[in-house]
Nucleic acid binder design. Structure first.
Length: 435
RNA sequence: UCCUCAGUAGCUCAACGGCAGAGCAUUCGGCUGUUAACCGAAGGGUUGUAGGUUCGAAUCCUACCUGAGGAGCCA
C-alpha cells in the first residue's frame, strides 16, 4: 500500500512513491503535459502529469479539473529546481474525490479581488496562501505569548466572558439576556477579575476574546478581539513597563525565528522587525504633547491623542515607544495617580512603530481603599457593583499593575498588514457579522 | 453618528450625454517544462434600487440601499 503523506513531509520522501490528498490550487497545461499545483493546508506542491505515464481517461480528467477540486495524487517525489518548492511529484495515478462544477466555479481566482467580495467569502478566502501565512504568524504570536508568561512565573487564570457590569464605560458593551430578568454583558476586559486573581496567585494572565460595541470603523477595530492581560501583585508602573517591553521583544523575536517563510509570503520588511530590541523609547505624555505640538499637531495637554498623533510620534523612531503618565481625567477610575503629580496617572501605552500605534495599554492600579472609593463616586459608578473589587483593597492590599495587548493589532503590525480584518479567521466588525 | 469616495459581465476595471468594452475566470481547440504559462475561438449585461432632467442617461440631478476610507472612541 502506498504511504500517504502531507506536502510538508515531501522532502523527506524524495525518490519514494507516495500519495498526497489535497485540493487543486491551479493547473497549467501544455499539450501532453499538465502541471497541477496541489495544496493540502501544509503547503503547495507542483505535480507533473505526462500523458504517457498514466491511463488516458485519468490524464484527460486531470487536464480538465477545476480549481479547488479535491483529489488524491500518487507518484514519486523528485528534487526539481524548476518547481517553486524545490520538489515535484511525477504523477502516476490520480483519484478525483470531487470535481468542482464548471457552471459554478470556485470564485476566488488567482487574480485580484476586492475587499467586499473576499470578506463575503471569508470561508473560502482562508484557503489562500497569504491568509495561511497570516494565520500561522498569529498562531506563533499566541504560542509565544503563552510561553513568555508561562516561563516567567505567571499562572493562567481565565476570566469570565459574561459579566454583570462594565469594566470601563457602559456605552460600548454588548448586552444579552441572562435568564429571567437579569442582563449580562460580554466582557470588555478581564482586568478587574485579573486583579482578584493576582491577589490570589501573585502573577497571573488571562487570554481570551473580548467584546466592544464601539461604532468604530477603522483599520484597527474589531468588535470581537483577543486580548492577553497579565496582572502582577507587588508591582508598580516601572515593573509593568519592563514586562511589557520584554514581552514584546520576545514575541517579535519568536516570529522572526520561526515564521520567516510566512513573513516572506507577506513581503514583510523583516529588517524593521529586527530593530525591535530594548530599550524602547520612553516618553511621558507631557513630553509627547510638546513633541507633537512641535511637529504641527494641534493637540493640547489634557486631551487624548488624535488619529494622526500616534503616527507623528512613532514615525520618529525605529522601535516601539512607551508613553506614560496620561492625564488622570481621561483615564479609567482604577488608575493610580502619580503621588508627586496627582493630575497624571501611572498608566502606560506601548505604541508600535511604522504607524501601527497602540498595541498595549496598562499601568498601576489604585491600591488605597479610600482613594478607590472616592474615584468610584467621582465617576458616578454604582458602589455596590464594586463591593468585591473594593474587598481586594480591604484584605491585604498591595501595589499592583498589569496591561492588555490586543492580539489582532499585534499580528497586523508584525505581518505588516493594512487592516486587522485579515488577522483573525472570522472577523467581527461594525456592519459585518457574516460569514 | 458624522464626513469623503465608490457601486457596469462570476472577478478586476474601462467607457463619463450619442453602438455596452478589455483582461482574468468558464467552455471548445492548439502546444512535452509550465511558474498568476502562452496562442486561437465561443458563451456571458435589467450599468445597485426608485424617481427626475433630456430628442437621447452607465454618464447629469434627488432619495434610498450596499461597501470602502477616515473622524470621534479604543487594544
Amino acid at each position: 500500500m502506498t504511504k500517504r503523506i502531507t506536502i510538508s513531509q515531501a522532502a523527506a520522501f524524495t525518490g519514494q512513491r507516495v500519495e498526497i490528498p489535497g485540493w487543486l490550487y491551479n493547473l497549467r497545461k501544455s499539450g501532453k503535459i499538465v502541471f497541477p499545483i496541489l495544496r493540502d493546508g501544509t503547503g503547495m506542491m507542483q505535480c507533473v502529469a505526462m500523458k504517457n505515464n498514466l491511463p488516458e481517461e485519468k490524464f484527460e480528467a486531470l487536464k480538465h479539473l477545476t480549481q479547488e477540486s479535491s483529489l488524491i495524487v500518487t507518484g514519486v517525489i523528485r528534487e526539481e529546481a524548476r518547481a517553486a518548492s524545490g520538489f515535484e511529484m511525477d504523477v502516476e495515478d490520480v483519484q478525483i474525490i470531487q470535481k468542482v462544477s464548471e457552471e459554478d466555479p470556485y470564485p476566488i481566482t488567482p487574480k485580484e479581488h476586492g475587499v467586499d467580495f473576499l470578506m463575503d467569502r471569508r470561508h473560502l478566502w482562508l484557503r489562500s496562501q497569504r491568509q495561511h501565512a497570516i494565520i500561522r504568524v498569529r498562531h506563533e504570536i499566541i504560542k509565544a505569548t503563552r510561553d513568555y508568561f508561562d516561563n516567567n512565573g505567571f499562572t493562567l487564570v481565565d476570566t469570565p466572558i459574561f459579566t454583570p457590569a462594565a469594566c470601563e464605560g457602559t456605552t460600548t458593551l454588548f448586552e444579552c439576556n441572562y435568564f429571567d430578568d437579569e442582563k449580562a454583558y460580554l466582557t470588555q476586559s478581564g482586568q478587574l477579575y485579573n486583579e482578584a486573581n493576582a491577589m490570589a496567585f501573585g502573577k497571573v494572565y488571562c487570554f481570551g476574546p473580548t467584546f466592544r460595541a464601539e461604532k468604530s470603523k477603522t483599520r484597527r477595530h474589531l468588535t470581537e478581539f483577543w486580548m492577553v492581560e497579565p496582572e502582577m501583585a507587588w508591582a508598580d508602573l516601572e515593573d509593568v513597563k519592563r514586562v511589557a517591553e520584554e514581552f514584546v521583544i520576545y514575541v517579535v523575536g519568536r516570529v522572526l525565528d520561526k515564521k520567516r517563510e510566512e513573513l516572506k509570503v507577506l513581503e514583510r520588511d523583516t529588517s524593521k522587525l529586527e530593530l525591535v530590541q530594548g530599550p524602547f523609547v520612553r516618553m511621558s505624555y507631557t513630553d509627547a504633547v510638546k513633541n507633537l505640538q512641535e511637529h504641527g499637531s494641534n493637540i493640547e495637554w489634557g486631551s487624548d491623542f488624535g488619529g494622526g498623533d500616534e503616527t507623528i510620534l512613532t514615525q520618529q523612531f525605529d522601535r516601539p515607544m512607551l508613553v506614560d503618565r496620561f492625564p488622570t481625567a481621561i483615564k479609567a477610575f482604577y488608575m493610580q495617580p502619580d503621588p508627586e503629580r496627582p493630575e497624571v496617572a501611572m498608566g502606560v501605552d506601548v505604541l508600535a512603530p511604522e504607524g501601527y500605534g497602540e498595541i498595549i495599554g496598562g499601568g498601576q492600579r489604585i491600591h488605597d481603599p479610600e482613594l478607590l472609593l472616592r474615584r468610584i463616586k467621582e465617576h458616578d459608578l454604582p458602589q455596590e457593583a464594586f463591593d468585591w473589587y473594593i474587598d481586594l483593597r480591604k484584605y491585604g492590599t498591595v501595589p499592583h499593575g498589569g496591561f492588555g495587548m490586543g492580539i489582532e493589532r499585534c499580528v497586523a503590525w508584525i505581518c505588516g498588514l493594512e487592516h486587522v480584518r485579515e488577522t483573525i479567521a472570522f472577523p467581527r466588525m461594525l456592519y459585518r457579522l457574516r460569514p
